[in-house]
């Protein structure tokens, strides 16, 4: 039972990171129909700028916010300079463009911060843990879960109750109508990228704390968050969060219970497990949990 609890908690921590990344994908996709493959690099940049800022002696919580703002601003800048020019072009071309922007960003990360892994500073002791029954929980993973939950709640409140949220939803619904109603669609695109960048930075910071350290390959975790986006449905922020948490937990359970059962085949099996879940799921519901089926006119 204690193994189960332990696995579930670390699954939740991983799931919170997946949810943050997946939500970033969905927010951008809903507003501008761009699937941003450079999201993983925002994770890395967020984590590295956090390390850089807090090493200057800035208090931890201030550094956290600063890292999120910097990454968000970078994302918004990329949208304004590059992707704004691509409006009206094939979806396919923008996907490829974001992949290559990602490559450029990764090289920039290597240029600025090098390839050596660094540790993420924490306001508490690195190995501090709480006892919960028979299981012990690292403070780092608990903080990841809490921060993820807070950020997600904040996002949904903004999305539901503020002017910006309403404008974002309107843009997602129909760009032309939104424009006709006086919503500055271009600025909304910018804000969605800002939000996606900030969420990714948060994910990167907490990912860099617990299971891993911060290095230039941190962003590869975004590849593992794809199934969450797809299972949740590309257009549904709620779906992305639910699927992200679910897949995080499933992945860790798989690592704990299924991998040893499969013998040689089970080595690293948990890394592909979310993809298998995704493929099976798509066979049943091709548009994900909460995605909408396209209705088309011939």
């Amino acid at each position: 039972m204690s193994t189960f609890l332990q696995l579930t908690i670390s699954g939740l921590a991983l799931g919170a990171v997946y949810a943050l990344v997946a939500l970033g994908f969905v927010v951008i996709y809903r507003a501008s129909q761009v699937f941003n493959f450079a999201q993983g690099e925002f994770l890395t940049i967020g984590a590295f700028s956090m390390v850089a800022i807090s090493s200057q002696g800035v208090p931890w919580y201030v550094a956290l916010v600063a890292a999120m703002v910097i990454t968000g601003a970078l994302a918004a800048g990329i949208e304004r300079l590059v992707l704004r020019r691509m409006i009206g072009r094939q979806v396919f071309v923008t996907i490829i463009l974001t992949i290559f922007i990602g490559l450029v960003l990764r090289t920039l990360v290597v240029l600025v911060w090098g390839t050596d892994p660094v540790g993420m500073p924490t306001p508490w002791e690195m190995t501090k843990s709480f006892e919960l029954g028979t299981a012990s929980i690292l403070a780092n993973s608990l903080a990841g879960i809490v921060a993820g939950a807070l950020a997600l709640t904040a996002f949904f409140l903004v999305n539901k109750y503020t002017k910006l949220g309403v404008a974002m939803r309107a843009t997602a619904g129909d760009q032309e109508v939104a424009l006709a109603l006086g919503i500055p669609v271009g600025r909304i695109f910018g804000s969605t990228w800002f939000i996606a960048g900030a969420l990714a930075a948060l994910g990167g910071i907490f990912l860099g704390m617990f299971p891993r350290t911060v290095d230039a390959n941190l962003g590869f975790v975004a590849l593992r968050a794809f199934p969450a986006v797809i299972v949740g449905g590309l257009e549904s922020p709620g779906g992305a969060v639910v699927a992200g948490v679910l897949l995080g937990v499933l992945e860790v359970w798989c690592q704990g219970y299924l991998n040893p059962q499969l013998g040689h085949f089970g080595h690293n099996f948990h890394a592909v497990f979310p993809y298998i879940v995704m493929i099976v799921f798509l066979m049943i519901r091709p548009y994900g949990m909460f995605g909408t089926k396209d209705v088309e006119r011939v």
């Binding site: 699937f35 979806v91 996907i95 590849l223 794809f226 199934p227 986006v229 797809i230 590309l234 690293n268 099996f269 890394a271 592909v272 993809y275 298998i276 995704m278 493929i279 798509l282 066979m283 091709p286 548009y287 994900g288 396209d294």
Partner: peptide, 23 residues
């Protein structure tokens, strides 16, 4: 799979295929 999926969904599933083959 290709028959049921379109566009991005298919693109991501094919990434999955890549990981599966490597595994």
């Amino acid at each position: 799979f290709a028959l049921r999926l379109r566009g991005l969904y298919l693109a991501i599933v094919t990434i999955g295929l890549l990981f599966l083959v490597a595994h």
